[in-house]
Design a protein around this nucleic acid. Structure first.
Length: 294
DNA sequence: AAGCAGCTCAACCGCACCCGA
DNA sequence: ATCGGGTGCGGTTGAGCTGCT
């Protein structure tokens, strides 16, 4: 137990370079753990908790900095649907990313989008928006940004409970011409269409037909979202240029018009990319987004 | 240039759990 | 059985940054 005097001497707030240096040097020499003792031994006027947090979330050598990649974002969406707010568990699946970072991402990006859409972030509508727009767009970004397939590079990337990787069996709104779907995407969709786990009634034709009813995404969006998708006219062809800036996380293309169509899709049998009663493309039940009040 | 609002993210807080004495 | 220290986790806060007017 520390005396009141010691308590009052404890520093709070942002870490200085000197403190960082002390912590790094101490851990390099003696390793992690026993944080309270470590704090004292290292000569830091910080609580053990503060030292631990600083190390794990910021100083540890394998921490990745910078924006989350579309692939990482997709993984977060998928894992959150599975585990809810189990940030540390989710973080374990994203090497170099911390639970704090993922939590911040969820709260500032995902929940923000839900708020702007004026929908409950755990609701079925939000669920559909994520599934039918956000995820496919992230997938598209991944296709464009990377090769080989991001899925093949993700160990244990298992979308859903089935052994098969049932990649979202969705099609993008007619954003023509879209890049050819990646191999796994097609395979998974084809495969899933023959499965009997609730994805069976998926038909890509149905889905694309449904999306064809969606409004064209305006080049000059006026909705609450700034679209980062620009249709570039080139040789009489329209090319969709996707790019990320710090605020673009793929869902910006979802506007209220689109969602209202989605809502009207409730009259039409639930979005064709929707899969049966409660399963969705990743084989998750409705309950998955309800684990915690988001 | 200044003021303001919104956003991001590092850091803190409180609680729960684990484990050894 | 229980007490206390150590640790981990999720929620929240606030300083600083950015962009807009």
């Amino acid at each position: 137990m520390s005396s009141p005097k010691e308590e009052s001497e404890l520093r709070k707030g942002p870490w200085t370079l000197e403190e960082d240096s002390l912590l790094i040097h101490y851990i390099t020499r003696h390793g992690e753990g026993r944080w309270n003792m470590l704090a004292k031994s290292a000569g830091l006027k910080r609580t053990g908790k503060s030292c631990r947090l600083r190390w794990l979330n910021y100083l540890k050598p394998d921490i990745k900095r910078g924006n989350l990649t579309p692939h990482e974002q997709l993984l977060i969406l998928e894992l959150h649907s599975k585990w809810g707010n189990r940030w540390s568990k989710i973080a374990q699946q994203l090497p170099g990313r911390t639970d704090n970072e993922i939590k911040n991402y969820w709260r500032t990006r995902v929940q923000k989008q839900a708020r702007q859409l004026n929908i409950e972030s755990g609701s079925k509508r939000f669920f559909d928006a994520v599934r039918c727009f956000w995820m496919p767009r992230l997938l598209q970004k991944m296709e464009q940004n990377s090769s080989p397939s991001p899925y093949s590079s993700v160990p244990n990337m298992n979308f859903g409970n089935s052994a098969e990787a049932s990649i979202p069996n969705t099609r993008l709104p007619s954003l023509s011409p879209s890049p050819p779907p990646q191999r796994e995407f097609i395979d998974a969709a084809n495969h899933s269409s023959s499965m009997s786990n609730g994805i069976s009634n998926f038909s890509s034709d149905q889905c694309s037909m449904k999306f064809s009813q969606m409004p064209e995404i305006s080049e000059h969006p006026t909705g609450p979202f700034q679209l980062y998708e620009h249709n570039v006219h080139h040789n009489n062809q329209i090319q969709d240029n996707w790019y990320m800036n710090t605020n673009s996380y793929g869902m910006e293309g979802v506007n209220l018009d689109t969602l209202s169509i989605m809502e009207s899709c409730d009259n039409i049998p639930q979005l064709d990319c929707h899969t049966g009663e409660s399963d969705w493309v990743f084989g998750m039940g409705d309950t998955l987004w309800n684990m915690d009040a988001m």
